[in-house]
Amino acid sequence: MPEAFRNDDERLRSEVDRVMKERAEHGLEGLIGGLESIVINTQPERQKDAVQEVLNTTGYVFEQAFERDGIRTCVLKKDGSADMLVTSRLVGENPFRPVNRGPKGDAMPDTRLETLVFKCPRLEEAVAIQKKRGVRFLTEEPVRTPSFLFMQTEPSPYTGNSVGYLQWLDGEGAYRPDDAQRLDWHFEKPDWPHLRDVHELDHAATRVRAEERDKAIIEFMELTNYHFDFAIYVEALNSITNVARLSAEDFAMVFTSGIEPFKSVEESGPTELFIHNYNTRVHHLAFRTENIEKTFDALVEHGMEFLVELVGSPEEGLKQTFTRPMSSTFIVNEYIHRYGDFDGFFTQSNVTMLTKATERQ
């Protein structure tokens, strides 16, 4: 009888070493920069609600809305943070729909955070290298406008996410092509003081299957210049939180999986249960937050529901919390504050309590 699968960092780290060497050999190091934007697709009838949810719960502001080639796009921005594009497909097929299937995900079959877009100043060179390595893209050639070049991979078989490359040519931050139809959409940004304490995107966390954890992390490293940093195991909940970094100052990518594969709803733990219900996808977006206690209280006062109270303490180095999933996107907001000279990223106790909280969704 074959031995049951169980994740092991030794296997992963041997693959990490291989990828780092191959990236250097192919000339990819330094070609792909930090996170420039994220693309969240919604059901068309929920798009405005999705934008308003972001405005009501983060420091982001609405900039503009436009439509081009059957895709409606709302651009939201926050100084010092990656941009947020909330989109809806009005015509045509959705290449992400197959990876959105699940008992709960089926309720909004076109909704997910689809693409993480990274700055790529020499896009055509990077794409040519990746094509030779067998990477498949959604278009044969880059999307070209006077302002930018853009190319994105097909949805990953391990995460359901796509990685995008963006090269600004002129007018950095100008997402609306000249031939796009500008939409007369307006949103009210609440003038709530606590939203000024919700800052940039700190990290995003993708749920991946236990048996595909290594493949998901390695694939992401092959598509970006990120490196694998560390993993925290929560044995009691059958969960591993894995962190990939570009640098200590940049947006981080988190991959959470089971230690062992899904067996049943009753015994597999909250991480594998989430995947069973929603398929692999980004579970939450984390925002760096000042005055986190007051911010938490104010969010509750304005109707926000949470999966867990604030966890952590100044003595431990950080505090965090998870909201309930946003009604229009399935995405959970995390608010995180690191104290003083805390030089870590997470703590074992916080990871355990936050993982446990996801049982409630």
Rank of each mutant, 00 (worst) to 15 (best):
N41T: 01
E29V: 15
N41Y: 02
L138D: 08
K119E: 14
T153M: 04
V300G: 10
S162D: 04
I217Y: 01
T159A: 11
Q348W: 04
N7G: 11
E124N: 12
D110V: 10
D110F: 14
N41D: 04
G173K: 04
Q52H: 09
S156Y: 05
E309F: 00
T58K: 06
T206E: 09
T111E: 01
K131M: 10
W185H: 12
R136C: 06
E359A: 10
E10P: 00
V351P: 03
G269E: 09
F322M: 10
N161M: 15
G30D: 04
A231H: 09
K189S: 02
M1L: 13
E290R: 14
K78Q: 13
Y165P: 03
S327N: 14
P109N: 12
K21C: 04
S313W: 03
D343I: 03
A244L: 07
E93H: 06
D297G: 10
P325L: 08
M353Q: 15
N94E: 09
L299R: 05
T295S: 15
V54I: 15
V54E: 07
V86K: 00
V243T: 11
G164P: 07
L31S: 01
L307C: 13
R207A: 14
D184H: 13
A126V: 10
F187R: 03
N56M: 08
